[in-house]
Amino acid sequence: MIAAALAYLAWSVSSLHVDPQRLLAGFGRALNILERMVPPDFSRWELLLKGMEESLQMAFAATLAGVVLSVPLGIAAARNLAPRPVYLAARGFIVAGRTFHEVIIAIFFVKLFGFGPIAGLLTLAFSSTIFLGKMLAEDIENVRAGPIEAVRATGAGFGQVVVYAVVPQVLTRSVGTAIYRLDANLRHSTVVGIVGAGGIGQTLSASFSRYDYDFSAAILLGIIALVALGEWFSDRVRRKLR
């Protein structure tokens, strides 16, 4: 087994044409880039701030859209609530949607709607809907069946069963998941810009291709601050919920 794995590793490394010469040159360039990154250049702070604001808006709007759209998707994908055909269709949609990484979806949306934050927003809204829908469906499938049966037995309609027996059982967890997703979207929003879907990532990508490494450093510091802030916020809120 181990021998086979090693042989495969050796084969794949050789087939990738790893050139030690190039590796060494890369390390050399890294030093050069790092040198040019200090001190970070905050002189174009307006551009930096605009990118960060765009990312932040993208993350917030995408999370909101995801939360709203994930409710029908989550209910449709819950085995204990949805009729069989609806359940299968919704699960199929989730599986298909999860197949592709955000970046691939972003490339697709950039092709459709052109460069800029619209493509990023749609990408994150789409992947948030899929993610939150799947989490919601799983939470709904784990609720206690007894209260659902009891509320149904009173003559309640489907909507009332959801509001009275399901929502109270999944609400706290779902709010926690949504906050977590907001935090994740903040991170993703910095990535999708690389393929032209707007936000701070696009600014970063542009600065790299213009060899403005000192500005790149400033942007990276900005991203670190943004993500750390998001994580702190998300942790705080989720701890409060528990």
């Binding site: 206690r144 007894g146 209260p147 049966e149 009891a150 509320v151 027996a165 109270p168 059982q169 609400l171």
Partner: peptide
């Protein structure tokens, strides 16, 4: 019901 089946929250 046996398990009361109230909505806890």
């Amino acid at each position: 019901f046996q398990e009361f089946n109230l909505v806890d929250r």
